[in-house]
Structure formats: C-alpha cells, structure tokens
Amino acid sequence: MNKVSLEARHISLSYGTTEVLRDINLKIEPGEFFALLGPSGSGKSTLLRLIAGFSQHQRGELLVDGQDITRIPPHARNIGMVFQSYALWPHMTVWDNVAFGLVERRETRDAIRRKVGAALELVGLGDYGKRRPGQLSGGQQQRVALARTIVIEPRLLLLDEPLSNLDKNLRVQMRDELKHLQRKLGLTTIFVTHDQEEAMTTADRMAVLDKGVLQQTGPATSLFDFPVNRFVAGFVGTANLLAGRVAGQEGGVLRFDAEGIGELRLPWPDDGPLAAGPAAMAFRPHQVHLQAAGTAAIDSARVWLEGVVESTEFLGEVSRYKLRVGRTLVVADQVHYAGEPVLAPGAAVQCGIDPRQVRFLAA
C-alpha cells in the first residue's frame, strides 16, 4: 500500500457558538502510526471524523499528500475507518462483511475472492469466513472490522477507540496485533484513544488535545519527560504538581516557594535560567525516593522533604504512597520486592527529589 502524509492547517470547527476544534495544525508523516490522545470532549474523535469526511470544518485546509480533500465526499476519499462498535452486519457472514466494500465498488468475483481471502488470513481469521459476528469473541469481531477496512486498500486507516470494548488482557494483545499489522502494511494510521498507555505503547508520535486545542505533539518519551504545560504533565502519566513561585536564582541555586511547604532550594544550572513568577514544580511519582524519617540522606544531590504517609496502594510492581508534606499531598511510587514491608499510614518519611528530573511549568 502507498504511504501518504496528512496535514491539517489551521483547522477550526464550531457547532453554533461552541468551538470544538480551534486552529489545529498537525503534520502526520507517510507510514506513521499516530495517536490522538485526550479526555472525553477534547475534540479527538471529531478531528478523526473530519478526516474521514463525516464532519466539515469551517476554516483551514486538510491535505492528503499535498492535496486538499476538504470538498471531497467521504466515499471518494478512500479512507478506511474502524469504529468503536465495529459496526458489523449481524445477518451477514464474516466473509460477506469483509467483502461488502468490494461489492459496492463492483469488483470482479475473482478479485473479491482473492482480496477477502488475503485480508482474513492477514488478521488470522482465514477459517472463520462462514461464521456470523454473533459467533465470534470481541477480539475476533475487531479483527473482522479491521479486515473489512484494509481489504479496500485505503490511503489512510482511522481507528476510533477500537479497543475500548475489550477486557484489559485482550486490549494488550490486540494493541500488539494492531501495531504489528500496521508495520506490516506500512499504512499511515491515526488512532484515537483516551487511554495514555495505549497511545504510548503503539504510536510513533502522538498529539494531546484538550477542549479543542492541540496542546503538544511528539514521541511519547518527549511528552512524558518534557510536558509543555500542567495539562499534558497530568494527562500523560501521573505527575506531582506543586504550585508556587520561582523566587530567584543565583550561585547555581534556584529558590522556589512551594505553597503549603515553604521555600525549596534546588541545584540549578546557570545556563538554564528561569524567570521569577508563578509556576508549578512538576515531577513523577517514580522519581521520588523514600526513606525513614531521621535517616541520613543517602543521596546528597536530592532535595529532601519531611512527610507522613496518608494512604497506601499496593499495585503489584510498585507500592503507591500518598504523603502529606506540609499542607500538600505528594504521590510516590516505590518498586516492590518480595518480602519488603509496605509502609503503613502514619509512618514518618523523608522524600528525596532529584532536581534533574524536575520541570517548572507556567502557572
């Protein structure tokens, strides 16, 4: 299949006075697996439907390989879409479901037989052609929906929350299969999800949307390590966000007045100056090191805060603690090892924060 690019230039869409998409600028490379990530109502599914042609933007351009497809109707765009509900015909066999698009295009019987057979083999359902959707599991139904889409050889593949109806274990299996299939076909794919783990484990790059605005675009590691604002920091992974104010910087030390905690002094390079003013100090729970209160600091490079365990969650690989530090809650994840006790609520601890992992975000 040919690899094509997609570009959105200043795309805006409103329903009445409600702005759903606001000045979206986005470039997706040929053959890329790209994820649109955001909460419900962020505009990600609207953007996907707009690409498919089911919605119409009022401003901007939508380009596929440099051609503006804004005025091209959905059936003429040759874009395949897999819906959350799979949208299979229950009275038709698996074979007939997959063949439907080819029949509508008036392909020859030999071409239909060859293409449907190849598509079903590709998704591992070569022996299921005579069954009906009601006789299949959720994962198998999703494979049928994928086969029905790829059999028409679309220029773009759009996936709208395709894994949300599956249980957790099957979701993990199917996202691996999706990624493998996409790599095999080399098909430019756009995957809409509200699940950060799905986006981070499948996509080459992703874009985070909130309230119709594109917040940040890039590889998962870039968004996780270097979020541009509080929303991205809190949505891509889990983040501690200490509100406060950058008070000043001198002699390689940054002074930050954290609300409910007090002044923190962090080693900070002079070549990375920060403007004084309101900010949020962001760091990840797994970057917090815990040790018993009163213990000498193991790592003098860390900034140490005194806290008390308020609650504990055992998550298997890690134990997650909510700590009361001053008047602020800090979340800390500690790797769990067999036989290692879990800290009880009320335990006094010291929290060590590595300044190299800290990000300061605008208020």
Rank of each mutant, 00 (worst) to 15 (best):
T217K: 00
D225S: 08
M206F: 10
P227N: 04
I190H: 07
N229E: 09
L178T: 02
A207I: 03
F224W: 13
V232L: 05
H194R: 02
D204C: 07
V208Y: 02
T201I: 02
G212P: 10
N240S: 09
D204T: 06
T238V: 11
V192E: 08
K184R: 15
D210I: 00
M200D: 12
H194L: 08
G218F: 12
L209K: 00
L214Y: 09
T217C: 15
H194A: 10
F191Q: 02
L209S: 05
N169L: 10
G212Y: 02
N240V: 06
G186S: 11
F191D: 05
A233Y: 09
F231C: 02
L209N: 05
E177I: 01
T217W: 03
M174G: 04
N229G: 11
T188D: 12
M174T: 04
P227L: 01
L241E: 07
A199W: 08
L241Q: 05
T238M: 06
A220F: 07
E197D: 14
F231N: 01
Q216H: 10
K184C: 03
M200T: 09
S222M: 13
V192N: 08
H180S: 13
S164D: 02
G234N: 11
K179N: 10
L209I: 04
D210P: 00
L163G: 01
D195V: 03
R230F: 00
R205S: 07
E198R: 05
L185P: 07
V208K: 01
L185C: 09
T238N: 11
R175G: 08
L163D: 00
L185F: 12
M200Y: 07
T189M: 10
L214A: 04
A220K: 02
S164L: 03
A220I: 06
L170G: 07
R230K: 09
L166S: 06
A239D: 10
V213K: 12
M174I: 03
R183H: 15
E197V: 15
Q182H: 14
D167G: 12
L223Y: 09
Q215H: 13
T189Q: 06
Q182F: 10
G237Q: 06
N240T: 09
S164A: 15
A203G: 11
S222D: 15
V236K: 03
Q196P: 13
L241K: 01
L214Q: 01
D167N: 13
K184V: 01
H180R: 14
F231G: 00
P219E: 14
T188G: 12
R230E: 12
V228A: 13
Q215M: 13
P227C: 04
E177H: 08
P219W: 03
G212I: 03
A239F: 04
E197Y: 09
L242T: 02
R171K: 12
I190D: 10
K168Y: 13
E177R: 05
P219H: 08
V172D: 05
L214N: 05
T202G: 07
K168S: 14
F226S: 10
I190W: 07
V213W: 05
R183N: 14
S222Q: 15
D210M: 04
M174A: 12
A239S: 15
H194F: 13
G234K: 00
D195Y: 10
I190A: 11
A220S: 15
R175C: 06
L242S: 06
D167L: 06
D167I: 00
V232E: 08
L185W: 09
V228I: 08
T221S: 14
G218S: 09
D225H: 04
T193F: 14
